[in-house]
Amino acid sequence: MTQVATVADAPTYDNRQDFADELRRLARTDERIVAVCNDSVGSSNLTGFRDEFPDRLINVGIAEQNMVGVGAGLANAGLIPFVCAAAPFLTGRSLEQVKADVAYSQHKVILCGMSPGMAYGELGPTHHSVEDFSWLRALPGLDIVVPADGAQTRSAIRNAVADPRPTYLRIGRFKVPAVSDPKASLTRGRFVTAREGTDVTIIATGTEVSRALHAAEILADQNISTRVLNAVYINPLDKAAIAAAARETRAIITAEEANVSGGLGAAVASYVGQLERDARVPLRILGLQDEFAPTGDAQFLLDYFGLGGDKIAEAAAEALQNG
């Protein structure tokens, strides 16, 4: 086995810092940008924004339904609101506001779900946001964007300001390495190819992209060539990239820090399952297997649910073998 510097050893970063820096930078030249939060100035990394633009940071206190409604009203008045809150409360408590006031009303609100997935670790399932993909995928007209590293986080914010539309932006706190070209810009509705490959495809999102790249390194040692697609957009879904993966490789593995009930894997499965017979491929869907997480820190829980590079690689090898 050859030893190379792997993605698993790379330095890691908290995407919230890039989020805060880019938002502040853009706000200096675009007065339409405002931030709305629920007593989460600190946890949303908005302290600097507040200090620089005190009038443009609207902290409604611990009142998430009002927070999302206020965001919709600000958008109605011609502003670009970034509504920031811990992802479980933003999506869970205010789900009907996200549906009626943002998605159905088509108010151009950028909902920023901070510290999603199991980033809050030991605080438990009340504080985990692993249902967000399932809930929000059910809403027409709402983009779901999941940057995998700092550079993509910055690009996602630039895109949101350049072409505002109803959006859920999942901003990770769990530290991740850089996995993308820092000069590249995100394209709406397109995955980013993180690694080319011809035997198997791993479609991963957010925290799982670096783990998928790690899995690809493990698989390379077994002479398996792995394509890694970074699913930055879950909605709109990159159907062309999925169809190409189904056509050009022999299995697809999906990996997400979310419940599998209705997330990325479910979206991919729904699409692949409806392709014509010869265009389909075996699938394995990795994530939380429809259970609330036990106690543990985020790293522990990712491993517990088989979301580390080694388990992803095992799933890929198994899928290639068993079909």
């Binding site: 443009r56 409604g69 206020v70 009203g73 600000l74 109605n76 609101p81 006031d101």
Partner: peptide, 15 residues
């Protein structure tokens, strides 16, 4: 739903 949106719109008009 209407009142929170109205609050945002009033705040937005002021801003």
């Amino acid at each position: 739903h209407g009142l929170p949106v109205a609050v945002g719109a009033a705040l937005g008009a002021r801003l």
